[in-house]
């Protein structure tokens, strides 16, 4: 993997670890209740990972395995306790908070399970937002946002508010928003998690075509076989460690088996 992509690696994590103060990573004790705060809970434990340009990378694993934490490290939302994250050969640990925000703005696109569009803004304005934050001139924002919405097949929805759109449509607006400042990599946290299978397939078609047409790179945390089959590589994480790495061919075989197994069960 890293050998084959070393030349074009745009994201590299080097032995990153993360410890949270006790309980804080668990949803049920998020408010910091209980007396075990001082106890450090390991979320990640020495992750080495390389992402090459134009790859679609999957991260799978059970709840609490550290998938989202890993994604947040790459996205500059969280900092590792040990190790480093290199993006475009720049070490993120050298950035202060504002520089990290700027990094997220210009180098990273995020897509979320629940789309996270700004509810008071139209589809077009949601796509304009990152450009607005980056200080792109107004006319340019609008032209580019319109073009991106056409790319994701929503040119007829530019003036719609998020509530007026289906989940699949909202997620495609979110993809257009993620593309707005032409990032190095788009990070998705369960991007199909809230979509029906038809919308999920359409989203994956879009992601595959963006990789093909724009050489766009994706790192997707997922449980969804529909996503996994499209990934060039899948990192399987458990207890903060990489359990194994599977290639596309292996995945197809596993998922094929799973499907035949499921078809026998039901």
């Amino acid at each position: 993997m890293s050998e084959t992509n070393a030349q074009a690696a745009i994201v590299q994590t080097v032995a990153i670890s993360k410890q949270y103060k006790g309980g804080r990573i668990h949803v049920e004790s998020r408010r910091g209740e209980g007396k075990d705060r001082i106890r450090l809970v390991p979320a990640l434990n020495g992750i080495d990972m390389t992402v090459g340009k134009g790859e679609i990378i999957g991260i799978i694993g059970p709840s609490g395995s550290g998938k989202t934490t890993l994604l947040n490290m790459i996205g500059g939302l969280d900092r590792p306790s040990h190790g480093k994250v290199l993006v475009d050969n720049v070490d993120l640990s050298t950035f202060n908070d504002d520089q990290l925000a700027d990094y997220r703005l210009r180098k990273i696109g995020f897509i979320f399970q629940f789309y996270n569009l700004i509810p008071t803004l139209t589809a077009l304005e949601n796509v304009e937002l990152p450009m607005n934050l980056a200080g792109v001139p107004k006319q340019e924002q609008e032209n580019h946002a319109y073009e991106l919405l056409r790319t994701v097949g929503l040119e007829s929805r530019v003036g719609h508010m998020p509530v007026e759109m289906s989940g699949g449509e909202q997620q495609r607006v979110a993809v257009a928003r993620a593309l707005a400042n032409n990032p190095l990599v788009i990070l998705g946290d369960e991007p199909t998690g809230d979509l029906d299978s038809k919308s999920a397939e359409a989203l994956m078609d879009l992601i595959v075509s963006l990789r093909k047409d724009r050489k766009m790179t994706f790192v997707l945390v997922t449980h969804d076989p529909l996503v996994v089959v499209e990934c060039d590589r899948v990192y399987s994480i458990r207890d903060g460690k990489i359990l194994r790495t599977q290639t596309k061919a292996e995945n197809k075989k596993i998922i094929g088996d799973e499907r035949s197994m499921l078809s026998k069960l039901y």
Partner: peptide
């Protein structure tokens, strides 16, 4: 809160 998180994730600075 989530909207604020989203804004920060897509690159809004604290000041913004």
């Amino acid at each position: 809160t989530r909207e604020i998180g989203t804004l920060r994730a897509i690159g809004a600075k604290k000041g913004q």
